[in-house]
Amino acid sequence: MPTDRVLVVDDEPRVLSSMCRCLRLAGFRVLSAGLARDALTLCDAHSFDVVILDLIMPGMDGVELLARIRKVQPLVRSVVLSGKIDEDLAERDIARKLRESVEADAYLSKPVSGTRLVETVRGVIVKDPPGDWKAIAKRMSNGKDLKIKTAKDAAKELKKFRKK
């Protein structure tokens, strides 16, 4: 859908432009960045529904970038690309390894076909969020659940809390 906004980040110019073209032809509204700081500038100005980035980029730390993008755009979904290391380990393993450092919504190994990419992006976009504000809020607060403790002695608890 043309209202779905996709941010594509890759430090290889032709990879970037070919990917953008692919997504645009598929009907997405695409913005792209070749540098981390440009990507972050765009994230300040625009709202994105999906960000696509290659985690292993010689020029920048993809994991770090994704983390920072998510601080600005907590609701953005992410599709993470990576070069294959082992045909058979591929996605499952990379996914597992990467999950330890950062969570993404989908993992794809390069070189990926355009069809697959488009399919995946469509798959992760949350169409009309049904107003589940609790879930939204969770994402907005970076996934931390707020625990509610009930205190018997309010003054004591308050003191304790203030000390922290």
Binding site: E12, V15, S18, V112, S113
Partner: peptide, 9 residues
Amino acid sequence: QSIRFEAEN
């Protein structure tokens, strides 16, 4: 990767 995309594009 880019060749692949463009061919498909």
